[in-house]
Write a protein that binds this DNA or RNA. Structure first.
Lengths: 329, 329
DNA sequence: AAACTATATGTAACCGTTTACACATATAAA
DNA sequence: TTTATATGTGTAAACGGTTACATATAGTTT
């Protein structure tokens, strides 16, 4: 390994001077700068980030904690974060928490132990873990918080829109799927939809689901049609659940969207590829990741923050699990 | 920040002793061990990995480089790697290369600068980047290599199986999609399929595609049916391309699998959710990630390696874009 | 009793950086 | 000419751990 001392020796100056040219701090004569740079080139020296991090008590690392990268909503988020952080010269320490408090704490600890300078967390686990005594900035992603900066989509509005749209398109016996209780965004969506539905004159049922895994979703889909066979509209808590409902409905021979309308939530990439393509409420996942990264960078740079909480807009994506509505009507 | 010195002071011993109890090295009296542990508890001390890493010249970090986490094949791989590494006490430094040599080198550099102890790389970029003068173990994932340990699926066999199955099911005018030239696994699949097809008595065309992005795939799908309108069987280079072909075929009013059979490659999670569900050649992505992690850990521990190159089996997933074949026939 | 060995602990050097401080020279202001 | 200021560079002390080495005591062998 080639160290700063090797560079110093080769260029005939002290390590302090080498450090100064590398970091562009303090005075250094143009001639020495050139000598040093030449030595750097020749030896292919690049500074040891670990040593740097130890002294400065800060690294170029940021911690990214997701529930599960395997859930199709998260790769987009992650990519948004990564692209932005990469642009800013930061690298990602990455972990999946599975919404498990112990795993979460574990990762948080190792983030700290590795001197990360900031954390982006998209977890929602029930026993709310302690982010309090973290001495570094945290921004929550896909999750609201009063105490911390956060970036999230307007779930409540999304719920309202979904309910509005399905109502506008004529569903009369709606089943509203309520996602896992500890996932705040799922509850927001539910509340928004509930608000609209309860002010309308249509019948509706609420059914609670407790995970977003596709296998579980399939079971609930079966249960849904067993319990409420005359449902003609489903507001799903996310696209995965919507997909399961869609499949089960097709299996039962229902015509979609004629017999049954379905609206999902998230607009994960595969939703447009389903048959029929899924109507859904879109969250701008990539942009959310990017936004979170930008917010964190600003906080780390101690810039003035106008908005601690960034709420991203949500849009209805009108595909084929909902009927067309007469725009003149 | 609480340091080892604070613990030493509180427990009335030297830092060396504290270090010894923490690392369970050297002799330490049971009574002092207890005193130290009590102080550790009380101060909530946990060692600074950066300092440790600096002295030992090795961290508990490993670098994971993927082409693009947003491509649905990779989250599974990543999760397999993560689960296994987490189990072994390693953390992941993560980056997307976009198959771009510069980005790749960039990440590789920062991996090294951060003292990672091993690297798992799933990149395939054309200007083969230099992994030679890396002083730490590398394992390639989803990529073959003579010089480095690697874990990959048997692409050639996969290609053969796909061709066999589509032939067995009666396609007579087959279009074989050849994936990007620099992606070795895609070439292997192509070669395998080509081998079988060229020994058969059916007509076939080869069409070259140059990326795996869905938007591009849609264009090729259109081009495919424009150029070879009577194609009755498509062997796609992966499930994304297969999905695009499927969509275009449906749009053109073809019945699937009656008019056209399609076989994909990878078995990404959404393939089973398409309509009709996609027949494909499955790569065990999660297991591949796991396997790669295990291999890397073994190498890092300098254990005897029986197999430098782990070829994972590939299986035909018989869903609904292929016809049923009479098992008695 | 002398010589070993095992157990237990502390001192200080080291890992590769950054930076406070000291020192030297050149230039400008008095 | 003296004094102040800007420029340029080096020495050495950190940062928070680990570990080689020294030292001390207790128990075992001869």
């Amino acid at each position: 390994m080639v160290t700063i001392r090797d560079v110093a020796k080769k260029s005939g100056v002290s390590v302090a001077t080498v450090s100064r040219v590398l970091n562009e701090t303090g005075y250094v004569h143009e001639d020495t700068r050139k000598k040093v740079m030449a030595a750097v080139e020749e030896l292919k020296y690049s500074p040891n980030e670990v040593a740097r991090s130890l002294f400065k008590k800060k690294s170029k690392l940021i911690g990214l904690l997701l529930p599960d990268i395997t859930n199709p909503f998260f790769p987009q988020l992650a990519r948004g974060v990564e692209d932005e952080m990469q642009r800013e010269g930061y690298r990602l320490l990455f972990g999946n928490s599975d919404e498990n408090a112990e795993k979460e704490m574990d990762y948080l600890n190792t983030f700290i132990q590795n001197n990360v300078v900031g954390i982006i967390s998209a977890t929602n686990n029930k026993t709310k873990t302690n982010y309090k005594d973290l001495s570094i900035p945290v921004v929550f992603l896909d999750r609201t918080s009063n105490d911390y900066p956060s970036v999230y989509a307007d779930g409540k509005e999304g719920g309202r829109i979904a309910a509005d749209e399905i109502l506008k398109r004529g569903s009369k016996r709606i089943t509203l799927l309520k996602g896992p209780a500890h996932i705040q965004p799922a509850q927001d969506r539910f509340q928004g939809a509930l608000e609209v539905l309860s002010q309308s004159s249509v019948d509706f049922h609420v059914m609670t689901t407790t995970s977003f895994a596709f296998e579980d979703a399939e079971k609930w889909a079966k249960e849904l049609f067993a319990t409420y066979p005359d449902t003609d509209g489903v507001l799903a808590s996310n696209d995965i659940v919507a997909t399961a409902v869609l499949h089960e409905a097709l299996r039962l021979g229902k015509s979609i969207p004629e017999d049954l309308q379905i609206i999902g939530f998230d607009d994960i990439p595969q939703s447009s590829l389903l048959f029929p393509p899924l109507s859904t409420i879109r969250q701008p996942a990539y942009e959310m990741g990017k936004e979170a990264a930008q917010l964190l960078v600003k906080i780390m740079n101690k810039e003035k923050i106008e908005q601690q909480h960034i709420q991203m807009p949500v849009t209805f994506i009108d595909r084929n699990t909902t009927r067309k509505v007469d725009t003149n009507g």
